[in-house]
Amino acid sequence: MRMPYTLHPLTSLTAAGCTAVLTTAAGAWPLSLAVALAAVLLAVRAGAGQQVLVAASAVLLPLGLSLLMLHGLFFPEGRTVLAAWGPARVTAEGLAFAWESATRTGACVLVLLLFAFTVSTPDLVAALAGRGLPPQFGFVLASALTLLPAMAGRLERIRAAQEARGLVLRGGVLSRLAAVRLQMVPLVLGLIEDSGSRAEALDARGFGAPGPRTSYRQVADPPAQRRLRTTLLLITAAAVALRLVASWPAAGPA
């Protein structure tokens, strides 16, 4: 799971965020494609290739198909018509627009997923708290990431228990809706009840108390990585500024 070399979580977060913003600012498909490929390569090298690709395709395939249908067939601004059936016109500009949009989003999604699947959540939470972010943020992040994988098992237990009581799952939207309602109630109730006692436990363990906190976990942050982060942020800021200035006149009121 971990990268072969140890990156401070904030370094990988900065790198991923800046890459995504730079790709968006550049708005050039060759760069987007290069970034996407690099992200996939890094993910495979870090041993998270399959996870990243599965999560990315779940997002990108419907988006890509939707863009292709939308802009490939209907692009009133298009001038170079390649084919036409009734109201639908395949235009070169439309296809180019779909390709540009899809590669840009694809690059951003892959880079951010690479970060999400390679970062160590405890390190990230410790690093964020060390930077003065409210500890509540780290709690919500880490707690959600531990709760989510447990949900499949919980739903399965509920379903089994209900089937044992004679619940028969049948086709048909209405009966499935009714079954979903029966499953939701114990799930929601269980989660909310658990969170009630969890709140009491957290309060008793000083979580709600104001004032400075300390950290047991220590995350190494070499100076070279700090300089790298500063550099990345500066480059990204410059690129964004450049793009805003360059495009401002073109973006006058319609």
Binding site: Q136, V140, A144, L147, L148, M184, I192, S195, G196, A199
Partner: peptide
């Protein structure tokens, strides 16, 4: 804190209930 602990729950419900309803 009692509200804060609900936030991860909300997120999980957004994802899981979204999928459950999607299955209909």
């Amino acid at each position: 804190t009692s509200t804060l602990v609900l936030m991860p729950v909300a997120l999980v419900l957004n994802v899981v209930l979204g999928q459950l309803m999607g299955s209909t």
